[in-house]
Design a protein around this nucleic acid. Structure first.
Lengths: 118, 118
DNA sequence: CTGAATCCAGATGGATACTG
DNA sequence: CAGTATCCATCTGGATTCAG
């Protein structure tokens, strides 16, 4: 039955789109570092994250934070300090990424050993 | 003890490097689609993969396959046909990616529902 | 059939300076 | 402090053509 094959192909397409959706969210040079920084401390201010991640510029931090917020992974809160500061924390949805990040971490370690041997 | 904090930071750095390693391997517009295509059928020829993935060009397929091969995720075999054809299959190491891809698929589906609502 | 080579547009990201 | 704006180099990937 060609039917079954077609169904299978459709299923595959859906799955590939889903993986791509995840990758789109996680792509960008600093996304994962930012998520890690925030989730590590629970709550984190802009300047804290800027210090946590070596090499990132305020321009990129701002840009990536905005994208993470659009994807509802982090929540942004303006604190009434003088001067103002802004706090970022993971949303519940953002928290669900932890399994993936953990898997990626484990695999990355094995992979590096495999490739570089260290 | 500042020591503990330093240790913690070092640990975090290693973990972030590891996640980044994984992402580097998986990045590129077609990597996951290619892996999926190959692992789906076990063995797959260049032109088959080209047909499996709609929109990919031979230039990109060639490029991404090469990177996957460098990372030891796939094995390339030249078949003695006329004209020659080339077969690709996952290595054992490549197989270990399946958990991650599965995770990314599941999360992507949930995420899409969350964001777009479909 | 399986690529490699070339050309080119658009995206990405760094450096720096500026604003509320 | 938390961004925004601008400029600019590099990277990415598409289209097309050529080669073994």
């Amino acid at each position: 039955m060609g039917c079954k094959i077609e169904e299978f192909k459709q299923e595959q397409k859906k799955r590939m789109r889903a993986v791509q959706d995840s990758m789109d969210v996680l792509n960008g040079k600093w996304k994962i570092a930012i998520i890690t920084s925030i989730c590590c401390y629970g709550k984190r201010r802009f300047s804290d994250i800027l210090n946590d991640i070596e090499g990132i510029s305020n321009r990129m931090l701002s840009k990536e934070l905005k994208e993470l917020e659009i994807n509802q992974l982090i929540k942004r809160t303006v604190l009434d300090t003088q001067p103002i500061s802004v706090q970022y924390e993971l949303t519940e949805h953002g928290d669900t990424l932890q399994t993936i990040i953990s898997n990626l971490t484990d695999w990355g370690i094995v992979h590096r050993k495999k490739i570089v041997g260290s």
